[in-house]
Design a protein around this nucleic acid. Sequence first.
DNA 1: CGCTAGATTGATAAAGGTCAATCATTGTGG
DNA 2: CCACAATGATTGACCTTTATCAATCTAGCG
Lengths: 256, 256
Amino acid sequence: MVGTVLADMWGEHMETKYRKAAASSPRGLRPLLRAAPFGSGNDKGMTQILTEKQQAELASIATEVHLRPRATVYTADSSAHSAFIVKDGMVKAFLDLSRGSQRVLAFLFPGDVFGLAENGRYVNSVQTVTPTTCFKIPVSALTEMFVRDGELELQFLFKMTHELREAQRQQIILTHRDARIRVAMFLRMLQRRNDGSSHIELAMSRLDIARYLGLSSEAVSRATARLSREGIVAFPSLRVAQVINRSEFDRLTRAA
Amino acid sequence: MVGTVLADMWGEHMETKYRKAAASSPRGLRPLLRAAPFGSGNDKGMTQILTEKQQAELASIATEVHLRPRATVYTADSSAHSAFIVKDGMVKAFLDLSRGSQRVLAFLFPGDVFGLAENGRYVNSVQTVTPTTCFKIPVSALTEMFVRDGELELQFLFKMTHELREAQRQQIILTHRDARIRVAMFLRMLQRRNDGSSHIELAMSRLDIARYLGLSSEAVSRATARLSREGIVAFPSLRVAQVINRSEFDRLTRAA
DNA sequence: CGCTAGATTGATAAAGGTCAATCATTGTGG
DNA sequence: CCACAATGATTGACCTTTATCAATCTAGCG
């Protein structure tokens, strides 16, 4: 039954490749989680929070899934059997609203978790944006492991708390009327995701950015054009942003 | 040290009353959590998810805190030592932005958790709206308990996942341009919180609603006036809403 | 090298923000 | 108990900004 459902979603045209995660080389292919703990650790900000042992534990019940761009991982309301951790690439969580419009709720990067359902149903849909590798973990095995290993479970609690913060930051962005500010804050979010460099890779389309920021794609275009014209952010190509005027950029995005 | 910080926030003018939760009568005074589990339970939707034993465990490390309206529970960026569960009443989580404006991120009702920090700092501020009783739980004791009792921890994982969904629903609301729809969706959210009755109690001010919906208070006024004029929702008093035209109300709020 | 989906730019109209004034409600003090 | 003060809510006028529609341009990709 599970196989049937998965076959529907990851049909033959997807060219997905499965592999036991545990069978991989011990280091690079294990699940990682990016989040911040409750208490005050030595280092501030997000870091990898799993121990080697926890990674190995997870790997023992995880499967690696390789997906090409724009592949559907799952759709909202479908029966939920697995959770996922992004290993490499980028996916978007979204909902299709009534009249064909789409709202992007989150972009998920390596170390992010998605697919933790409610009442056995996924609450939103997830599609890949770039070529993506995910760890796929049966929810039943995961919850069993949680009960046995409270430390591992705690890492997931940190992670979900962290994702809640991200969603709340997104709320802040969405309440700003000015499209220029929304786009700038969005770029700052991507910047934080990476190393904080002024060079920002935009893996998603302008339309997906618009869907994420609650704007029309035209408004996003005009906002980027204006940021460029004002010498705050340069866009050397469609998929690259470069912060030019750091202080002005900070001023724009320092609304919170 | 903890006492010092708390004294700053809950000073003598607050008239707060402390009481060991465990010393209370066994039933009604224990912490409850409202959320949905990952898997498919028998009943859909939110329910109380803690067992009697788990409630007792929590109660053993919790303190009851009574707060009057508009009392500050904690402020953003302050040192975080305790998490909270709303027992009775209602609080708001918010952030004060640069030029005096305020964004309300969430309203928290009985069974909701707040105060799970990141890196030892609260990420937003929390104030009571109505007279409120909270269970106050030291984070250190809570995390220790988590490691011992994976089942209890799992309930908190459910809860935080559920709060993430709430935040994402809020994102959907915020992306709608029409103020009337935002207000209607907000009312529907409150409706779901309670028993789903067409009679909706509004504990918060219009201004707080505006801050939550990313609107001006004028826009909220106009939206409620229009809903009333159109015979969709009646407002018999400032703090009560009554859904009149159910089908039209559903149509407006059935954007997702 | 042309094709197609995505991105940009322009013009128009609708909707909410803002400023200002009035009304209502709550809480206080006489 | 009432009057008044103060805060919150509502309404109106005007203005800014974005959604929308439409046309053009660009970048990948076969």
